[in-house]
Write a protein that binds this DNA or RNA. Structure first.
Length: 294
RNA sequence: GGCCCGAUAGCUCAGCUGGUAGAGCAACGGACUGAAAAUCCGUGUGUCGCCGGUUCAAUCCCGGCUUGGGCCA
């Protein structure tokens, strides 16, 4: 039995997941792309060490920000865990705000290893020219990617060139439904409520020493490390002279915008999810689903 | 009290001495099978401070007023 708890940031996904896991004896798998990194703590609003130890949890703090890790690796890791716990009949709770990672775990996303995390970009070629090249190699992928979306064009080129596989012949074999049956809820909140929670949470992060955490990380790792692209970290790095209040305002804004993107993704990519703005109602719903499955 | 500069979108500001306005950010909507807390796309929402004047026509020119800032008393 797989339960998926998705939703926008600061909606209370983690605490719901832990409550549910304790109630039904489940295990928790992280689906939050920045909760992997053990160096990122304050700014990621990750569950505390105590919480993480209170039930079996996986894929939290499993990486250093200098480790190479991709959605391919994630897919492998999650599917391995699913295989183990499905067999032992223990409920699996997949929780996190990274919708693409949830999809890659549960749907027929065929990925190849060793594409690498970062695509080299020497900026010598224009967006239009890169896109033109992609059109020749993989017209299906090119049609789906806007020429200005340079990052995705480069990625698609790398996939086509290195894997001798194109979207065109790739998609023919895809299964459209999920590979595993699962029950999914999306946790959301009214904008006013969410705004208030985000602001409070961001303020708390500064009180807890987010600036210091960022400084410490910069002593040991390059500033372009992927983990430092996280909201909160990148704003502090980019604006060293801003006051705490200015940074809190900026980070809260970026977090609200992120929540909006999450909402759009979950709404359109998970049509069979049930939405809740109340954590307790979501909890009761999931408990009921669990009991029905027994 | 006198002089000078400003007042245009939610914010910061553009706007050739005349033909009822546009950038960035924000906001709103969207895409997304390989950086996803990433990346990208679409949408202008406006008594151009107020009142009068000149003109076929005023955000623009003229007068007055209100208001913010600066300088001089």
């Amino acid at each position: 039995m797989i339960f998926v708890i998705g939703g926008v940031t600061a909606a209370g996904k983690s605490s719901l997941a832990f409550k549910l896991a304790k109630a039904i004896g489940g295990i928790i798998i992280n689906a939050d792309a920045y909760a992997f990194y053990r160096e990122l703590n304050i700014g990621t609003a990750k569950p505390t060490e105590e919480e993480l130890a209170s039930v079996p949890t996986f894929l939290f703090n499993n990486l250093s920000i200098s480790d190479p890790y991709s959605i391919y690796d994630y897919q492998q890791d999650v599917r391995r865990l699913i295989a183990i716990y499905e067999q032992s009949k223990r409920p699996i709770i997949l929780v996190g705000g990274s919708g693409l990672y949830i999809r890659a775990a549960l749907y027929d996303y065929r990925l190849s290893p060793n594409i690498g995390i970062v695509i080299e970009d020497n900026f010598e070629e224009s967006n239009a020219s890169l896109h033109q090249r992609l059109t020749l190699i993989d017209p299906v992928a090119a049609a789906k990617i806007h020429p200005n979306n340079r990052k995705r064009v480069l990625r698609a080129l790398a996939i086509s060139e290195n894997q001798s596989r194109t979207e065109t012949n790739h998609e023919r074999h895809l299964k459209s439904g999920p590979l595993f049956p699962f029950t999914m809820i999306v946790l959301d909140a009214l904008n006013e409520v969410l705004e208030r929670r985000i602001h409070e949470r961001t303020t708390d992060m500064f009180v807890s020493g987010l600036r210091q955490e960022v400084n410490d990380i910069c002593q040991k790792y390059p500033q372009n490390a992927q983990g430092l692209q996280a909201i909160g970290y990148k704003e502090i790095l980019a604006n060293p002279s801003m006051t705490d209040d200015e940074l809190i305002a900026l980070i809260s804004l970026r977090t609200r915008q992120y929540a909006k993107r999450q909402r759009t993704f979950f709404r359109h990519q998970f049509s069979n999810a049930t939405w809740f703005s109340d954590q307790h109602e979501a909890y009761l719903f999931l408990i009921k689903k669990y009991e029905d499955s027994l």
